[in-house]
Amino acid sequence: MNDLAHPPLTISMEGTGALLLDAAGAIFSETVQERIWSLAERLQAVPGIRETVPGMNNLMVVFDPLHLDPEVLEQRLHAEWQAPVTARAEGRLVDVPVTYGGRAGEDLFEFAEAKGMTAEEVVALHAGAVYRVAAVGAMPGFVYLSGLDPRLAAPRRAVPRMGVPKGSVIIGGSQAGIMPVTAPSGWHILGHTDLALFDESRDPPATFRPGDRIRFVPREVLS
């Protein structure tokens, strides 16, 4: 096995009833993430496991410690990690309409300037990629998207904003995202979408699942 495809696996405690399986290397790996999704789905059938929570190249497993011995579970996780990735239905491809710049994306022009690009070039790169939903979490319905063009990667803002509006289309580090609710964030705001990412009256409540693919479709670039 080569190290890039299979970085060293660590399993640590997350309190009395959860384990964190971490397979992250130096950079995010799509291959590792597919293994994470596959494992998360398989583990849901294991008696005593309550929840599986995929992160970015990691997986939190929540279990009932009174009925499932954490040491047994740990061994099982190591063994299952070696198992072949089970076939998984291809995620949906969803077009997300975006209004870029202006009031909708207040960082667009500053962001473009810092990159030595025009706003139109940034929009073209951002809307030119197909992203994958790597994980859903942090806030209800928030999507961690992989697939950002490396030329758009940017460190987070030095001072986070206290309220980034719901629907903001954002970039942080090498990740892209969409804000499902208005909340504090240090990511850059490029635009806005009206697509709702979460509805608590639905089950499942989140619009996207890990593995779904997203294309941003420019509706307008405001100045």
């Binding site: 997350e14 309190g15 009833g17 959860a18 964190l20 971490d22 992250a24 995010f28 929570v53 995929p54 992160g55 970015m56 190249n57 990691n58 997986l59 939190m60 929540v62 994980a135 979490g137 942090a138 806030m139 961690y144």
Partner: peptide, 28 residues
């Protein structure tokens, strides 16, 4: 990388002052 967290997690942000995440913490 972003990862799941549980209530009771004691995190240490860059300023070195711990935070204990509780009932309404972010999930990651």
């Amino acid at each position: 990388f972003s990862h799941g967290i549980m209530p009771g997690t004691v995190q240490v942000p860059p300023n070195g002052q711990p935070i204990i995440q509780l009932a309404e913490a972010n999930t990651c």
